[in-house]
Amino acid sequence: MRSNPVLTSILIGLFGLPLVLLALLATGQYWRFPDVLPPGYSLDALARVISAESDLGAGLLLSLGIATVVSVLSTGLGFVFSRAVARTRHPDRWVTLSYLPYALPPVLLAIVIQPFIIRLHLSGTVMGVGLGLLMITLPFCTLFFRSFWGNQASQYEQVSRTLGCTPTQALWRVLLPLARPLLVTCLFQTFLIAWFDFGLTNYLSVGKVRTLTVQVFLLVGEANSRLAAVASLLLLLPPSLLLWLNQRAIARRVI
């Protein structure tokens, strides 16, 4: 049960290597086979994030916007839905139903709903992509908040009502403060689900909604490793920030 320096070094190398290689790819110039290291370095590829010619800056803002809206909506609605589920006579049936979207891999979900997205005139729009992502994140949030609606929350609510709170006051002044840590964690996790998604977004966007993940794939297809590495590093920024803010929020991510 002693610490093993070799094992520690291997794990540090394994987890640190992606960052090193991505940084080398993003800053290395004229890095051709068989050079082990780039002959020169430049930050011009990173500067393209804020340049008007590049889609990367726009993709970053678009991804941030979609992930933020989806996470806020699904956390709020999931909180309400999970309360309704907890109050039914057969919550287990609703829990099973909530797992339905997980039977469909995201890209398959996109394939299945695409004909209706087209009929709703949402194909290739941010709204269409957002709706698709909500179908994954909403049941996640509902399942996530299931544990909150136990006896304790109900008792607190009943006491507050007995003491004269209106239902709205009980929600705002008792239940929401009580659920705050869970709400924050759920917000972080749904943000990451939406931020990381590629398959569903790529299929529903039909090339028009170019989020960062879609751009990474397109850049890899164009063999533009430098910009693909820059986009990849940008993709790591919000999760790193979230990790720094709240380690447990990321750790509890449900698969």
């Binding site: 992606p18 991505l22 990381f196 590629f198 990474v216 993709l235 790591l236 999760p239 990790l243 990321i250």
Partner: peptide, 10 residues
């Protein structure tokens, strides 16, 4: 936690 920061595409 570090690998959890990486999207599968990356």
């Amino acid at each position: 936690y570090v690998p959890l920061l990486f999207p599968s595409l990356v």
